[in-house]
Structures are given as structure tokens and as C-alpha cells.
Design a binder for these strands. Structure first.
Lengths: 228, 228
DNA sequence: AAGCCGATTTGATCGATGTCAAATCGTGAA
DNA sequence: TTCACGATTTGACATCGATCAAATCGGCTT
């Protein structure tokens, strides 16, 4: 199931260091965490872990995208989160439980840093700076998950899409062009929509000046989109 | 805006100590956190804090229920969470940001322990046991919020209600009687439903042996409910 | 025990989104 | 450049849940 793995290279250590999880760590605290990382590559569609398996490790995404999802009794899947470069996942199980509570799958070819739960638990116990990094990561993740709940409950599909686009715009006003970092398929799951619903949402947004061609989205007026 | 406040009494300290946030703390670590608590009472419907206000404190519920929600641009409200005795809220802002990201309102007369963010941040910095308690609390909260996202996306209203009932059943099988701890109004918000939708969900569940009279719910066969 | 008022249920309707099938588009390979 | 196949869009429909209004219920006061 696993591809070849290796200790993090210098380049990979640099990537990890810039991550929001590790960016506040320095010196020996940082070194200890980096030394605990093992890097794995998975081809697209690989299952990284499944709900119910013993939760032995959590991961940080170096490259590619990972889908975190759960399967219902009748076999339908719902995405909980899409993790891209810099995101960590399953970190809520460091002190949170023995088994994974959801499944993770490579949405494309991905490269991941794997952290053994025990190692990081120990590191957090020994080193307050590591514990603080864990707290910060959990806090941010929790806040964004709460945002997700509210968004689902408060906004329609076109509004959620508009929201996503606005948040990805590098600028505040005027016109912009965005290239989606992944397939629309993934975006749909991330917004809690069927792919068809995402497509329809885009076509609803045409009247707000949104043009779609493949992965490239043109926005003629960001403020108009905001008002939608 | 504030009712009278006071340092936690012995009874209140006991309540707090049994909380999942503090249950693993002992000795001076525990004492330090308990000493930081101030107890407040708020009458029903009081706003405890609002989105955007400086996040100076987080809270632990001693008695009653608190609604955590956000208001959309057009004035609709969506609940993010309902906190009852033993729950803490806004703890994600200990290291997470300067302003509240949502509002909190007393759903009934409530009694809360208030913790100054700074105090607890300092305590977590000084004392690894406190940091670990914060990590555990954040982890559990995050896991339950992720469950909430998936539930919303995967299950219909009657399924979510059935789920709620099953989780509140003290036993595993057979028949049971449950008394809702709060108004149906709150339950609806908690499940992401309009009150009317909750009512209809209950009536759909009649065919699965669920009988409703006021706050009392009779379940004739828990397994049947589970299969729903 | 009667009465009151807010909470809940019910009815009618509408809009939003999921589902399935068919048409079309886009991108990577040859 | 062309082809082929998977990704995306579109159409037709069914369903779910929100909303508004009206009827009813239930817990509390008197």
C-alpha cells in the first residue's frame, strides 16, 4: 500500500517549516518535529487511511490534494475537508482517540509528511512550544470547520461558490482571473455540492460577471460578486 | 449587561472539575485554572458576546444552555452549536484570534464560568498539563464539529433526529423514554433545521415507533430507529 | 379549574438541490 | 493536429426542507 518513503529532505523540511502548523517553531523544537517526519508519495486515488483503522499517524500535505470524507451506510460519500499544500489532517487525534473517524484519499498524486502520533504526543509533552503549535493548528482547523457548518446552513450554492472565489482573489476590488487548483469535482465536494449543482451555481453566477472556461475563472467585478 | 459575578464557589469548582475540559487536571494545575474562573449568571435571551467583539474570554457552561450562532447579511441566524452543562465555548480563540467569530446567547437562564483568555494562555504556557487540557478540549470540539458537517451533508432531517435520539438513549436496545433537555426550538437549530422541519421529522419517525408528547419522547424500539 | 400566551404542529406552497441520462467540452497522448 | 476519454454541463425530474399563515397544544399563572 505504501510507496517508498524517506526522511524529509532539506527542501521538504523547508516546505514544512513554512506550514502554518510549524511556522512559529524554531531551534530544537522545530528540529525535533522535522526529524519525526517521514515523507510518502501516493498516486491519485490511493486510500491513505480509512475510518475505523487505528490512528497511528497524522499528515501534512507537501504537494497535491487530499480528500477527507466519510461514507454513509448506503455508500454515499461526503467530503469533510479538502487538504492542500500546508494543511495538516487527522491532527485532532493526537489526543483525540484511537481510531480514525473518517477516511482520507489522495485526490491526485500527492506527497505527504507523516508524523507518528506517539512521537508528536511525546514532543508536545516535553516541549511547550510544540504543544502551542498543536493548539494553534487545532484552533484554526476548528474555526474553519465551524465556518463550514455555518456556510452550509446559511448560504445557497451560488453564494458558497461566490464566497470561495472571493476568498481566492488576490486583490480586493475590480476584476480578477483565478485558476482553480484542482478539478471542479473536488471543489463541489468541498462546498458540499453535487458536481451538477456546482456547474449550475457557476452558470447562475454568470449574471454577476463570472465566466468559466475549464479551470480558469474570470471575474469582471469582485464587488458585484460580493453583493450576490 | 453583566449580572453579579463572583469567584467560583466550592460547589461550582466541583462542577468545573468534572468537566471534560478539566477532568484530567489535578493539584496546582487544576487550582490555577479554577482560581482564574469567574462565575456569571445571565437571564434567558441575554447576548453573551457578539461576532466581531474583542475576544477577551471563553466560557464553560455550569447550568442552562447557550446558543452559538452567526447572523447572515440578510439577518437570518444559523446555530453552530448548542452548549450545555460541561461544554466550553470560544476556547478556539485562546490562540486563535482577536475577535469573536460568532455570537453567543443564553437560550435560557444560564450560569457560566468565565475564563480570561490571557490568564489561560499564560497558564498553558507555564504548565504543560493545562496545555494538554486545552488540546484535548479543542480536539473533541473539532471532532464533533466535523461530525456535524458530515451529518448535515449525508443525512436527512428524520435521520438526524433519529441520530440525536439514539445518542441520548441511556441503553442500547429495546424501548426507551427520553426527556429533551431544552425546547424543540433549540434542538431544531442544533440539527440545522427550521422548527417546522423538526416537527415534521418527528412525525415521520412515528412510523419507526417514536411518540412525542411535549418534551417527552417515547421510543418503542431503538434498533428500528437505528435502521431508519 | 380556567385562562393565557408562547411553543409547536399542520397545511399549502415554493425554491433549492440531488439524481439519472444524454450531450458536450477539454486536455493529454499519439 | 487530431483523437479519445474522462470531466463537465445541460435537461428533466423528484425530493427535501424553508417559509408563511393558521390552528392547536402545553405549561404556568391566577
Amino acid at each position: 500500500m505504501l510507496d517508498k518513503s524517506h526522511k524529509a529532505s532539506l527542501r521538504e523540511r523547508n516546505l514544512l517549516t513554512k506550514t502554518s502548523f510549524l511556522k512559529d517553531l524554531t531551534g530544537p523544537s522545530l528540529a525535533r518535529v522535522l526529524d519525526a517526519a517521514t515523507v510518502f508519495s501516493f498516486p491519485a486515488r490511493t486510500t491513505i487511511f480509512q475510518e475505523g483503522e487505528p490512528a497511528l499517524a497524522f499528515y501534512s500535505v507537501l504537494a497535491g490534494y487530499v480528500r477527507i470524507y466519510r461514507v454513509s451506510r448506503d455508500g454515499r460519500q461526503a467530503d469533510i475537508r479538502i487538504c492542500g499544500p500546508g494543511d495538516i489532517f487527522a491532527e485532532c487525534l493526537i489526543y483525540g482517540g484511537d481510531a480514525y473517524r473518517f477516511s482520507a484519499q489522495a485526490a491526485e498524486n500527492v506527497s505527504l509528511a507523516r508524523f507518528d502520533m506517539q512521537d508528536i504526543r511525546q514532543a508536545a509533552n516535553d516541549d511547550i512550544a510544540v504543544a502551542r503549535s498543536v493548539i494553534t493548528a487545532l484552533s484554526q482547523h476548528l474555526l474553519s470547520t465551524m465556518d463550514c457548518v455555518v456556510n452550509d446552513r446559511l448560504h445557497t450554492a451560488p453564494q458558497r461558490v461566490a464566497d470561495y472565489l472571493i476568498n481566492r482573489c488576490p486583490i480586493e476590488t475590480g476584476q480578477a482571473s483565478i485558476r482553480l487548483p484542482f478539478q471542479k469535482n473536488l471543489l463541489a465536494g468541498m462546498l458540499g455540492l453535487a458536481p451538477e449543482a456546482l456547474s449550475r451555481a457557476f452558470s447562475t453566477l454568470r449574471r454577476a460577471g463570472v465566466t468559466v472556461r475549464g479551470r480558469v475563472i474570470q471575474i469582471s467585478d469582485i464587488d458585484a460578486l460580493r453583493r450576490f
